[in-house]
Structure formats: structure tokens, C-alpha cells
Design a binder for these strands. Structure first.
Lengths: 120, 120
DNA sequence: CAGCATCCGTGCAGATACTG
DNA sequence: CAGTATCTGCACGGATGCTG
């Protein structure tokens, strides 16, 4: 069985995962941390145009979920390092399945869209 | 390589896929149609609390993407049947990878959240 | 039956400015 | 440096009512 049948339950915890995977920044953070821990600014610069507030929200939620750890070094200037936990790292696989699927089917999807958008 | 490095491009087509997978209703439609074609109302009833407008939007977008087909029988009363295309059906695999991951890790995530939310 | 048209509320992304 | 504080806007989900 693909799903235990509770995927239709609005409160199904699987939904939470889908939300995370579907979240733009969460995925990018995982991929960014794939090759090692990074500081806040390094993440920010690597990811591109992301407001600090939004990045912070994303990181806090991921920390809460146990996907990353957050280590604060009380220096001046402060240094905070984010690291993928084993669980966080295990997300890379599902993500790569999705991206593989995407790269395989995107051309067909694009064609389907064009066909759909063509003359009425 | 997990990603071709363009996952960070805001216009990366892979993002579109992530958005679809992350979309609550799209996933439920795929799972609903897994065992055969369904009519609009059947989908609506099976999925649960979803506004017709939202379901229609979801179905149109999926049709446009080539994930489902929409057949209209000009009868009275009208009958419209939605069917998973081969491409749409191929989405079940990635989805099941996600749900498998979810079912494996949800307990750990829940525990992590509780630990995080505990005494300040 | 299968939807379209319309309206509403609002959650939330994002920009900007400031601080320990 | 690594955030917090504050404001804005608008995309989007959802409810309701109508129609071919």
C-alpha cells in the first residue's frame, strides 16, 4: 500500500512532510548543507534572494523538526553554524527522487502546457 | 549529481514540480485516481472538504501539465471523467517515496518537536 | 452534474530598518 | 554577524450563489 490510507486526513502527519518538501527554502537549505555546515550568511548568500526573516523562520522550523542543528558561538561578532542532522541528510534521497522525476518529465510537461495553451 | 545545479534558479522548472508535489490537492487527486477514472463529484467526495472552485483549479492545472485527461460527455446531466495519464501515474512513485520517508521519520520528528517546545 | 462568477478574509512572503 | 521588529501587499483558499 502506498499510503496507509490516512493521507486524506487533514491532520495526517504526512501532510506536514509534504509541506516541508514543497517549501522552496527548506529544500534549498537541505541542498546547501549537503556538503557541510554553513553559517547564516553563507546560507543566505548561497541561496540567493531570501529575506533574513524568512530564512530564520525556515531554519527555526527545520531545527524544531530535528532536520538541522544550530550551534551558537558567543563570540564577537557572533557565529552561528547550521548542520544537517542524519535525519535531515536522509531527506536528500527523497528530494533527489523528485528532481530526477522532474528532469525526466519537465520537457513533456512543457510540451503539454504549450499544447494546452494553443489556439482555443 | 543530485541536482544539475539549477535548483537555485528561481525559474528552475524543477521548482514547478516541487510546487505540484507540495500541493495538498494535487497529491490527493493523484492518489484518488490511482485505482481508476473518477467523475468530478466522486473526486470531490473522496477527497473531503474541498471547495469546487479549488478542485477545478487543481484539475485544470493538472490537465494542462498533462498529468490527467478530462473527458466531457455532453449528456444531461453532464458527465466529466478524469483519468490519470501515464505521466500522472508515474508520479505515484515519487509520492510513495515521500510518504515512506514520512512514515519512517514522523515519530522522530514529533519527538524532536516536543523536545524543542519543552521548558524554555 | 459540473462548473463559473463573485466576494471576502487573511495568512504569509518579502522589503526595509534597526540592534545586541 | 545574526538576527529581530515592523509594515505592506496580494496571492490564495474558501464560502456562497447561480447556470447550461
Amino acid at each position: 500500500m502506498v499510503t496507509k490510507g490516512n493521507a486524506f486526513d487533514p491532520n495526517c502527519p504526512t501532510r506536514t512532510i509534504l509541506d516541508r518538501i514543497g517549501d522552496k527554502w527548506t529544500v534549498l537549505v537541505v541542498l546547501s548543507l549537503r556538503s557541510g555546515p554553513l553559517r547564516f550568511t553563507e546560507l543566505r548568500d548561497g541561496i540567493g534572494r531570501v529575506a533574513p526573516k524568512v530564512l530564520t523562520q525556515t531554519l527555526r522550523r527545520m531545527e524544531r523538526d530535528g532536520l538541522i542543528t544550530r550551534e551558537v558561538y558567543p563570540e564577537i561578532p557572533p557565529r552561528v553554524v547550521y548542520t544537517l542532522t542524519p535525519m535531515g541528510a536522509s531527506l536528500i534521497e527523497p528530494i533527489s527522487v523528485i528532481t530526477d522525476w522532474a528532469e525526466t518529465h519537465v520537457p513533456a510537461i512543457t510540451r503539454a502546457q504549450q499544447r494546452y495553451d494553443e489556439p482555443a
